Amino acid sequence: MTATVAIGEFARLTHLSVKTLRYYHEIELLEPVAVIAETGYRRYSVDQVEQAHLIRRLRGLDMPLPSIRAVLAAPDPAARDATLRDHLAAMEAELARTRDVVTSLRALLTVPVPMLRVEYRIEPSCTALTRTDRVAREAIGAWCDLAFGQLFEVVAAAGVTQGGIAGATYSTEFFTDDAGEVTAYLPLPAGTPLDPPPHLELTEMPARRYAVAVHTGAFDDFDRTYGALGSHVAEHAAALPDEPIRERYLVGPQHTDNPAEYRTEVCWPITEGEIR
């Protein structure tokens, strides 16, 4: 017969506090094998020690409780290991994001804002294959991967030559509300015969005058380029109200796997007025 112990002894065996064990009982994550009706005292089987140790380690990895349930309920080791691998992959991604943020913060504190070379030009109108959606700022990376993947795939399948540099336009709401309309576009030569699938369309991109600066590298400190360029426009030109900002991806993920090599033009829409 397997031995049972009181909750205090089980806490010593597992390094889980009595408060934690009571909570796990309440949420049915780790239930005692018996509860004495007269006293409400909980008793645990020593066979549950290994399960408690597993829970403790998974919580130490910040695994959400539903995922821990999935691990405990796994029908076999392969299913359990798959859940654990998914969580470890998510942790590694979060660790990489944290490293990027720390690097960016150190640069913000120690590296002065680079002097931007700002040029003024009119981007001519063009026909482009586009995808437009309302996108949350936190989802923009995944959305761009999806949208540009579709644009390049459709153009390649049609045997069409790209007519210019791919880019995207970002509505004012994307910045003010953390979600707004974004259009990914791929310019095409004039008169290109193309029948786009339903989620894409051919769009006439209007001619616009811009103040333009180039951001070099990954997007962790992209806000600094935006801040410097927007400040320059405020001091020397007049921004065009409610006109989307345009980004042109001179060197992007479609060109290199190294984010340090990215080169992105940020195009700030301005009026036809005099440059100060």
Rank of each mutant, 00 (worst) to 15 (best):
D178M: 03
P32N: 04
E138V: 13
D76F: 00
G163Y: 09
L65R: 06
I68G: 03
L88V: 06
A166N: 14
E123W: 08
A179W: 06
M205I: 15
A142M: 07
V233H: 07
G180S: 11
L84H: 08
L72I: 01
R43M: 04
D178E: 11
M63V: 11
R224A: 01
V154E: 14
G191N: 11
L88I: 05
T161F: 00
P193F: 00
G273D: 15
R131V: 14
T225E: 09
D178N: 05
R56I: 03
R209H: 02
A93G: 06
G8D: 06
E274A: 10
D178V: 01
A70L: 03
A139N: 14
H25M: 05
V111L: 08
R224V: 07
P66D: 10
G149A: 04
R248N: 13
M63Q: 12
E38T: 08
A168E: 06
T161S: 09
P244A: 07
G8T: 01
E201Q: 15
M205V: 12
A6F: 02
A234V: 04
P187K: 02
A158C: 06
A213I: 03
E272K: 08
N258R: 02
L72H: 03
I275C: 05
P244F: 01
S67C: 10
Q162S: 10
G227L: 09
F222D: 14
F174V: 03
V113N: 15
T264F: 09
Y170V: 13
A3Y: 01
A74F: 04
Y41A: 12
L65I: 11
F152H: 12
A107L: 02
R263T: 14
A136D: 15
F175N: 05
A260D: 15
S104M: 03
D195F: 00
P197C: 03
L240I: 04
L116Q: 15
A79C: 04
R121W: 10
A213P: 09
A107F: 00
A228W: 08
L84D: 10
V35N: 09
